[in-house]
């Protein structure tokens, strides 16, 4: 068996034991959603403040998305490790054996790593997608086009995320997509209202 096949088989085994798939999917949806909404906040804030430099928007956006990514990575790793260690200890009290060096212990540790990677990269990548039009500002020359396009991309990403959740829950994908867009629109309106306060 090739090393890659063996690795994939081991990953599948770990998935069966530690049920990584379901929790990773949940983290992915939850944190990609966070990433998109945070980026909407950054964009509306920059727009309201009249920032006209793509570089400034990109650097604030990237710094924010990296911070969300690091937060997801760290937070999920320690939370998941703690929860899974507790589960393992609990199981050990039944089997009266040390399960750390068994397949179950290794699956549990691998699950914490996989889940934290998903949790870290999902918001980071989602934020990058939303920010992508600003990298192309020189193509159309007008930063406001980048703002509008980014917001449209953000709403599109929210719709896709909603449709993804709809597919998981076997509900109406379009309806779930529209519900997610609602959150994006609310974030935009609230962010924009800040202008009135100033």
């Amino acid at each position: 068996m090739s090393p890659l096949r063996r690795w994939l088989q081991q990953l599948r085994e770990y998935e069966d034991i530690a049920e990584v798939g379901e929790i990773a999917r949940r983290y992915f949806a939850m944190n990609a959603f966070d990433g998109i909404l945070t980026m909407i906040g950054v964009l509306v804030g920059n727009y309201s403040a009249g920032v006209e430099s793509a570089r400034v928007v990109i650097s604030t956006g990237l710094a924010t998305s990296m911070a969300i990514g690091v937060s997801g990575l760290w937070g999920a790793y320690f939370t998941e490790s703690a929860e899974r260690k507790r589960d393992l200890d609990d199981l050990e009290s039944y089997t009266l054996t040390d399960l750390n060096e068994t397949k179950i212990g290794r699956a549990s540790r691998a699950a914490a790593i996989v889940v934290s990677l998903v949790d870290g990269f999902a918001p980071f990548l989602a934020a990058l997608v939303v920010l992508s039009p600003f990298f192309l500002t020189s193509l159309w020359g007008n930063i406001y086009h980048s703002y509008y396009l980014s917001l449209v991309v953000a709403l599109g990403a929210l719709f896709a995320l909603g449709a993804f959740l709809g597919a998981i829950s076997r509900e109406n994908m379009a309806l779930m997509g529209v519900k997610m867009i609602g959150a994006g629109l609310l974030a935009m309106v609230l962010g924009y209202l800040l202008r009135l306060v100033e």
């Binding site: 085994e13 069966d16 034991i17 199981l91 039944y94 089997t95 399960l99 397949k103 179950i104």
Partner: peptide, 12 residues
């Protein structure tokens, strides 16, 4: 043998 539910007896 006493075993946890996972891995399943199929895997065993």
């Amino acid at each position: 043998v006493l075993k946890p539910h996972q891995p399943t007896i199929i895997e065993w």
